[in-house]
């Protein structure tokens, strides 16, 4: 875990201040609409820190609160973190748990994806994971808080920025990943499976199942792609 890696991750993830800020703002406005106070909404974004888990549990918000269903929904929507955590163990297994476990509190899809790409370019550095996680968390929690501080409504460009920037950012990692690919079949499989899952099952499972199917095809190839 180096300072240089931390700085590199922090700078690389700065665009997420904008996209996560906008998404956090939309989340804050949703919480506000459901009658949650500012302190609860900010705590919700800080502790849960997952757009899908928060969106789903908020959609269940009722009196009395269906606690068991909410916990099960959190487990189901965040099961992808098990895979990401296991992958991070491969990369940073030599690092003391007292350094890694607090960092994992801020683990997000995008910070994991960015760290995986950075490992290919610069070698394993958990500082990058921590650095890239910070602008994302600040944007998300700050956006939620801002929804209570300013008289705002979720409008077109704001929703568009919140929805698109994470996808576009991950798309910018594709050219560097393509250099390591041995054939297009795993990626085509990932895309097709993700498409089918999003269309016929549930969009929140498309990354995990689509990526899993593509990885199985990668494993059938003679050399690692």
């Amino acid at each position: 875990m180096t300072t240089a890696g931390f700085r590199r991750g922090l700078v690389a993830a700065l665009p997420f201040l904008l996209s996560n800020g906008a998404a956090g703002l939309v989340m804050g406005l949703t919480c506000k609409g459901l009658g949650l106070g500012a302190a609860h909404a900010i705590l919700f974004s800080l502790l849960v820190y997952s757009a899908t888990a928060q969106a789903i549990t908020l959609s269940m918000w009722a009196s009395p609160l269906p606690i068991v269903a909410m916990v099960v929904a959190c487990i189901a929507t965040n099961s992808r973190y098990l895979l990401m955590g296991a992958h991070l163990r491969q990369l940073f297994g030599g690092l003391a748990p007292r350094k890694m476990l607090p960092t994992l509190f801020l683990l997000a899809d995008a910070s994991w994806l960015m760290t995986s790409a950075d490992v290919d370019r610069n070698g394993p550095d958990a500082g990058y994971l921590l650095g890239s996680s910070i602008p994302m968390a600040v944007g998300w929690v700050g956006g939620t808080a801002f929804a209570y501080a300013a008289p705002l409504a979720a409008n077109g460009p704001l929703r568009l920025a919140a929805a698109l920037l994470p996808t576009m950012f991950i798309a910018t990692l594709i050219p560097s990943q393509w250099k390591n690919a041995r054939s297009p079949w795993p990626w085509l499989t990932s895309a097709a499976a993700a498409l089918l899952v999003a269309r016929f099952v549930d969009p929140s499972w498309s990354m995990l199942i689509g990526g899993g199917c593509g990885t199985l095809v990668s494993m059938m190839e003679p050399t690692d792609a």
Binding site: Q90, A117, T167, W187, M207, I209, G211
Partner: peptide, 21 residues
């Protein structure tokens, strides 16, 4: 499996994002 997963997950993530966008 974990070593090969990232690139494939990138693609699946992008497809999901494009669909919702």
């Amino acid at each position: 499996f974990l070593r090969l997963a990232p690139g494939n997950l990138f693609i699946a993530f992008i497809v999901g994002g494009c669909l919702s966008g």
